[in-house]
C-alpha cells in the first residue's frame, strides 16, 4: 500500500491539511442566494451523493462555487463499518468529483448504512471492539488507497450502544485514526448528543480524542426529546455545545469549522451568522471549559418506541429524524 500518501503528514496537526476557517454546509435551498450574492463564507461543505451523479443544476452550482471557495466533500454512504464489500463504483465517482471540484479533503462517518445489499440511509453504529476496529481500519486503508488521499471520519450521533462493545467512542476513534492513519471530523454536537444519550461525560470525550488528528469540526442544532436527544440539524447551536467547541478549539489549536443546518432551513444569512458565532469561542481571553454540561433529560419514557397502526409503524414527526435527508427538489416550469 502506498503509505507515502498520508504518513509524512501524520505528525503534523490536521494531517497537514489547512484550517479553512468558518464554513457552511451547501444546501439546495441556498443555491440561488449564493450565486447572486457570493457571501463572504470561508468555505463550503458539499454532500458528495448530491453531486456525484448530477448532470444538472446541482452540479452546475457546485462547479461555480468551487471556482470561488474551497470545497470539502462530505459523504453519507461510504458505509465504512458495513460487512458488505466496498462499493467501488461509488468510490470511483467520489474520487472523480473530488478531483473535479478540487476538494480539500473527503469525509464520511464512522458507521454503516446497510448490509446484505440494502441501504437504510441512516448512519448506524457498530459495536466498538477489536473485530470492528480491525475491519474498519482495513477498509479505511483500502479507501485511502483508492481515493489517493487521506479519509476524514466523523463521530456520528448514536442512539444505542452494544453489549459487545469493549471500548469507548474516544478510544475507538483514537486507535482507528492512528492505525489507519486517517483524519477525524469531530462533530461536537454529536459528541453532546451521544454523550447525553449514553450517560457519558461529553467534556471527557472531547479531552480524550486524538487532537492532532482532528481536521475539522461540525456544529449543529439538535432536538431534545425528553428522554434522549436527536441529531436533527434544525436549529441554532446550544450553549453547552458551544462550550464543548471552545474546549475542542483550545485542545486542537483550531481546525476548519462547519455549521450543518438541514431541516427548517432559514435564509442563508441566518445560517452564516450562526457559524460566525464560533469566533467568540476562539478568543484566548474567554474563560476555558468549566464544568461538564448536563442536559435536561427525563426518565423514563412512557411512550412505546414504535406504535403499530394497521400493521405499519407510526412515522416519527419529521422534526425528530436524525441525519436529515439530502434531496434536491427539481426546478420545473
Amino acid at each position: 500500500m502506498n503509505r507515502s500518501l498520508t504518513s509524512p503528514n501524520a505528525a503534523l496537526p490536521r494531517l497537514g491539511l489547512p484550517n479553512l476557517g468558518l464554513g457552511v454546509g451547501l444546501r439546495a435551498a441556498h443555491f440561488s442566494h449564493i450565486l447572486e450574492h457570493w457571501p463572504a463564507v470561508d468555505w463550503f461543505e458539499a454532500i458528495s451523493e448530491n453531486f456525484m451523479d448530477s448532470q444538472g443544476r446541482p452540479r452546475y452550482v457546485l462547479d461555480r462555487i468551487a471556482e470561488r471557495y474551497p470545497i470539502v466533500l462530505h459523504g453519507v454512504s461510504l458505509s465504512i463499518g458495513s460487512r458488505d464489500p466496498l462499493n467501488l463504483e461509488y468510490l470511483r465517482k467520489l474520487k472523480k468529483l473530488a478531483d473535479e471540484t478540487a476538494a480539500r479533503w473527503i469525509s464520511d462517518h464512522l458507521c454503516w448504512t446497510g448490509v446484505a445489499g440494502r441501504n437504510t440511509h441512516d448512519l448506524l453504529p457498530i459495536p466498538l471492539n477489536e473485530e470492528s476496529l480491525r475491519h474498519v481500519v482495513a477498509r479505511i486503508r483500502a479507501v485511502q488507497e483508492i481515493l489517493e488521499r487521506p479519509l476524514v471520519l466523523e463521530n456520528p450521533s448514536t442512539y444505542v450502544t452494544f453489549a459487545d462493545s469493549t471500548m469507548s467512542d474516544w478510544e475507538f476513534l483514537t486507535r482507528m485514526a492512528e492505525e489507519a492513519d486517517c483524519g477525524l471530523l469531530l462533530d461536537v454536537n454529536n459528541v453532546y448528543v451521544s454523550s447525553t444519550n449514553h450517560d457519558w461525560d461529553a467534556a471527557e470525550y472531547v479531552r480524550r480524542v486524538p487532537h492532532r488528528r482532528v481536521v475539522q469540526f461540525h456544529l449543529a442544532g439538535h432536538t431534545n426529546c425528553g428522554t434522549h436527544l436527536i441529531d436533527t440539524h434544525d436549529g441554532e447551536v446550544i450553549d453547552p455545545v458551544w462550550a464543548l467547541y471552545r474546549l475542542a478549539h483550545e485542545l486542537t489549536g483550531g481546525a476548519s469549522t462547519l455549521l450543518e443546518w438541514d431541516a427548517k432551513i432559514p435564509a442563508f444569512p441566518v445560517v452564516h451568522a450562526e457559524v460566525l458565532k464560533a469566533k467568540r469561542h476562539m478568543s484566548a481571553a474567554l474563560p476555558g471549559f468549566a464544568a461538564s454540561p448536563q442536559p435536561r433529560i427525563q426518565k423514563p419514557s412512557t411512550a412505546p418506541a414504535a406504535i403499530p397502526i394497521a400493521g405499519l409503524p407510526l412515522a416519527a414527526p419529521s422534526e425528530a429524524i436524525g441525519q436529515p435527508l439530502h434531496f434536491v427538489p427539481p426546478e420545473v416550469r
Partner: peptide, 30 residues
C-alpha cells in the same frame, strides 16, 4: 439487553425504536 444496552432514560427496545421510527420517516419524507 444482551445485544443492545439500555440507558438511564430508555430501555433497549426504546433505543432501537429511535432508529426504527427514523427509518420509515426519513424515506417517506424523501
Amino acid at each position: 439487553e444482551r445485544v443492545v444496552t439500555r440507558s438511564q432514560a430508555l430501555d433497549s427496545i426504546e433505543r432501537l425504536g429511535v432508529y426504527a421510527n427514523a427509518y420509515y420517516a426519513r424515506l417517506l419524507e424523501c
